[in-house]
Amino acid sequence: MTEFLDALMQHAFLRHALIGGLLASLGCGVIGSYVVVRRIGFLAGGIAHSVLGGMGAALYFGFDPIIAAFVTAIVAALIIGLVTLHGREKEDTLIAALWAAGMAIGIIFLSLTPGYNTELMSYLFGNILMVSRRELWLMGMMDVMILGLVGLFYKQFLAVSFDEEFAHLRGVPVTLFYLLLLVLVALTVVLLIQVVGLILVIALLTIPAAIAGHYMRTLAGMMAVGALLGMLFSSGGLLLAWQPDLPPGPVIILLAAVSYIVSLLARRLRR
């Protein structure tokens, strides 16, 4: 612990990693709660994996990968949302296709880009120790946007997530809010990719909110506790990974998964 604190004082990259984890946790608690109650974890996974296509293409053509990730994630979210809303294709089939196609595009571009194959591992499993100051600012801006929109439209998002038909009857533009929610999921996914990589994103998007859901009566409570748990897991995972020099992303996820199982068992025992 003290060694970790010393290292934190010494190394800017470690401080960046810690701040990055905390910033990502805000989005993960708030949007993760919607993902859990609306049961769209698979959809979030599809968005996350399709992002590799954008990142691979960006590296090949020399664009900024994180901007490409945001754009790809939003486009994937809107494709899934619009196509399923119009009932042209089954949602899970479409998500699975987008999931795999995105990865295929990404791998092809990465293989065409000389010397960049090491990037693949950090996209897949995250490399929080490489987060730059600029990326932190970008993450912070995304948090402000997510919290701002959810704060403004909390009651509409709640009504649409809870009972879409009733919300529609009360004059809420249900389609608009559903698509907006998917865009927010896309933004959060990219935030979390910075921390744990695109394969492990779904875990951080669902586990903290799901644990919070075991104990909280309201969605807002679930969001707050989910965000706190996300902070606990990302900071704790970073700490645990430091001494034995393990990759932080997977350690964060394992910490979250073990906590989830403990919470499930505790709930079982209380009944």
């Binding site: 109650v37 009651k155 509409q156 709640l158 009972d163 919300a167 004059g171 809420v172 679930m222």
Partner: peptide, 25 residues
């Protein structure tokens, strides 16, 4: 159509009736 285990209180559920007749933000 809602899930019975949705994290919402009775009061919040009834309040959703006010949408469309209350402020948008």
């Amino acid at each position: 159509r809602f899930a019975r285990d949705f994290p919402i209180t009775v009061e919040q559920l009834v309040l959703t009736a006010r949408l469309g007749q209350t402020r948008w933000w």
